[in-house]
Computed example of a mutant assay.
Amino acid sequence: MKKYFCVIFFLGLSISSGAFAQTSKTVSEDFNSFFAKFNSDPKFQISRVIFPLKYKMNNDDFELTDYTMTKEKYRTLHLNNKADEKHLKRTLSVKKSKATLEQRGLDNGIYVDYIFELKDNQWFLKTWVDQST
């Protein structure tokens, strides 16, 4: 009887540790896959923006000012439009839990950084800083 109890105990222990190992190794979402869907699916995009969206933008006096946007006022962004490439240079930097998309205009004054954040293994647009002139 003692033998069976030990076998059942160790079997149960190994099953529970295997289940724990599977749940603790959740994989973070791939940024490139996220970014492709973010730019092609408006509903997905809205679901992946942290609202109220806090962002910075130059005011009429070219002073960087803090703003807040509600979900109702948000307009879908198109951050990978190929037609923009003749006016715009894009640089993407992806770190462990932060990604920054820099958009720099080619002789047109555009200067915007979009900042994405990894939360609970999913990417979200956290903010942007628009210093365009």
Rank of each mutant, 00 (worst) to 15 (best):
Q22E: 05
Y111A: 11
M69T: 08
V94G: 00
D66T: 11
K73M: 14
N108V: 08
D107Q: 15
N80K: 15
G18S: 07
E29R: 01
K71A: 15
K119E: 07
S47H: 07
S33T: 10
S40L: 06
T100R: 09
A83Q: 13
D66L: 11
W123R: 00
Q45M: 10
K126M: 13
T23D: 01
E85M: 08
K82F: 14
M1C: 11
I46G: 06
D61T: 07
D113A: 12
N108R: 10
L64W: 07
K71C: 09
D84N: 14
S93G: 05
D60E: 07
L13S: 08
S33H: 08
G109L: 14
L64K: 10
F20I: 06
A21Y: 12
F10L: 13
L92H: 04
T68V: 14
N32A: 06
D60S: 12
I15L: 15
K86M: 05
K3F: 07
S17R: 02
Y114D: 04
T76K: 06
Y74S: 10
N121K: 14
W128Y: 15
K119N: 03
K25C: 04
Y74Q: 10
K82D: 12
L53E: 06
T70Q: 13
D84H: 07
K95I: 00
K126I: 02
S40D: 03
T23S: 08
G12S: 13
D107C: 07
S93L: 12
N39S: 03
S47M: 07
T91E: 11
F35N: 01
A99F: 04
M57W: 06
I46F: 14
E72R: 15
L77N: 10
K95N: 15
V7C: 00
F10I: 02
F38P: 01
Y67S: 10
S93M: 11
L101A: 09
K2Q: 10
V129N: 05
N58L: 06
G109I: 10
M69G: 11
L53C: 08
D60T: 06
F51K: 09
D130W: 07
K25M: 08
E72Y: 12
I110M: 15
N59G: 04
D113H: 14
F38G: 02
I115H: 02
Y55H: 09
L92D: 05
F62A: 11
F44E: 08
C6M: 12
D60A: 13
G18L: 08
Q45G: 01
W123C: 01
V27K: 15
E102T: 14
N108L: 13
L92V: 09
S24M: 05
G18T: 01
N32I: 00
L92E: 01
Y67G: 09
Q22M: 11
Y74C: 09
L77A: 11
Q131F: 03
Q45A: 05
K56D: 00
G105S: 10
K95D: 15
